[in-house]
């Protein structure tokens, strides 16, 4: 089973770190195969940026995404850029204060969280990506929260570790609640085998 995930936003939001943390958690602590690639451009800041993650039970052969099942978006630009490639029955996670959703296909499951606002409440907007990762973990169940908590130490500055974990938990709790409140009856766990898009 192979799942393709795109984390996106603008440069400086910690998008690449999101990809690394999710991949690290999956590969080192969930015993899955996880290959992360990132888009490199001459721009260092500001423009749409993304990290691509493939999580699979088998070794990942094709390293890139062909049709992601999950799109995590923390900016309007990135969302508009990457939404068209999202699988028909895919899942979209957005920062609701930064992304205004309009004309998203009904088949796509949508989840929103004020990640950056929560991060600001915790003291630093830079933690928005961690809030989003918690939300991602709760909503998609692709990577377990326990593994995330093991992956975060060593990948964030030691002195901010506690704050990062707090941010993650904030997002996770919000995600768990959101899932319960989700009106449609479909199982929120992503059944990736039904939307298999491994490149052929």
């Amino acid at each position: 089973m192979r799942t393709e995930i795109r984390f996106s936003g603008f440069g400086g939001q910690g998008i690449i770190l999101s990809g690394i943390l999710a991949g690290k958690a999956a590969a080192l602590f969930d015993n899955k195969h996880a290959t992360m690639t990132q888009s490199f451009g001459p721009e260092a800041r500001g423009s749409a940026c993304s990290a691509q993650l493939v999580v699979s039970d088998e070794p990942v052969l094709y390293p890139y995404l062909s049709q992601p099942e999950i799109l995590v978006s923390m900016s309007q630009d990135a969302c508009e850029k990457f939404l068209p490639e999202l699988a028909k029955a895919g899942t979209l996670l957005v920062d609701e204060d930064l992304v205004k959703l309009s004309s998203v296909k009904r088949t796509i499951k949508k989840f929103a969280i004020p990640a950056t606002r929560f991060a600001e409440e915790l003291g630093n907007r830079i933690l928005g990506n961690l809030v989003m990762l918690g939300f991602f973990s709760a909503v998609t169940e692709i990577v377990s929260p326990e593994s995330f908590k093991k992956a975060i130490p060593g990948s964030v500055p030691e002195r901010f570790l506690e704050l990062n974990l707090k941010a993650f938990e904030k997002g996770y709790d919000y995600g768990a609640e959101t899932k319960i409140k989700t009106p449609n009856k479909q199982k929120t766990k992503i059944k990736t085998d039904t939307v298999l898009t491994e490149p052929i």
């Binding site: 996880a34 290959t35 992360m36 690639t37």
Partner: peptide
């Protein structure tokens, strides 16, 4: 470049 910039275990 692909192998160099690809992150895995």
């Amino acid at each position: 470049e692909c192998v160099g910039h690809m992150t895995e275990k």
